[in-house]
Amino acid sequence: MLHNIEMTVNGELVKAKVPSHMRLLDFLREELDLIGAKEGCGKGECGACTVLVEGKAVNSCLMLAVEASGKEVLTVEGLSEGDSLDPIQQSIIDNSALQCGYCTPGMVMSAKGLLLRNPSPTRDEVVEAISGNLCRCTGYARVVDAIMQVAASSKSQDEGSEG
């Protein structure tokens, strides 16, 4: 069965015709060539396919493209514009919080989902937000540090503007 779908991906309206069984992950990677989201397990266990749907982190391997119709989807490609990176991306670079990079887009999106809903999380909340993103290289600590730094700097900026 084919469906006409329409969704906003990284701020752009996308219209397509997709079969029922096409996962959001396949739609992003195969149809839109947005390869940032990776398939690591296909079962929602590794988090490498994490994207934001309506601002919330989801495993795009466990969602159909047709289910995302009418919704707003943000992938890692939507975070940077030209040379300007999202503060989370910059912080991951500055903290050397990546190695092979395969989990990184998913990790970044989980962090983005967290900071959108909670700009000043505790360390435990950061750990919770990324504990569904498996990483075999880094040992996680730097990733948590990187996200905490973004939260801290946005907090100090807020305080600065209020003062």
Binding site: G47, T50, V58, L62, G132
Partner: peptide
């Protein structure tokens, strides 16, 4: 239950 991503769905 599961991860944050899973609990969102």
């Amino acid at each position: 239950v599961g991860s944050l991503q899973v609990r969102n769905r």
